[in-house]
């Protein structure tokens, strides 16, 4: 079983990396970009039967810092 964890900065938390990417896109001539936010994708290969609670706990205890980040879990068959 696989799970993909998307970790993103909360709204209102400054994202200098996203800003730099935005700037670079502008520099390449892509003028229609309103905003860029960069995040992380973490792929977990899990033992079958790993509970949703355990995956959520992994996110809360380590994979995301919930002071500044949100996370979304996507289970892949």
């Amino acid at each position: 079983m696989k799970a993909r964890i998307f970790v993103t900065l909360k709204g209102g938390v400054l994202d200098p990396q996203g800003k730099a990417i935005h700037h670079a896109l502008d520099g390449l001539g892509f003028s229609g970009v309103n905003d860029v936010r960069a995040g992380k994708l973490i792929e977990l290969d899990l033992a079958d039967g790993t509970s949703d609670d355990d995956i959520d706990a992994m996110c809360r205890k380590l994979l995301a810092n919930t002071v500044i980040e949100n996370y979304r879990i996507e289970k892949v068959a």
């Binding site: 938390v13 400054l14 994202d15 200098p16 800003k19 810092n65 500044i68």
Partner: peptide, 17 residues
């Protein structure tokens, strides 16, 4: 110390990058 919860808040990437 912030990551371990001994102090509140977090330290982000410097604003200027």
């Amino acid at each position: 110390l912030t990551e371990s919860g001994l102090l509140p808040g977090a330290l982000l990437r410097n604003a200027g990058g």
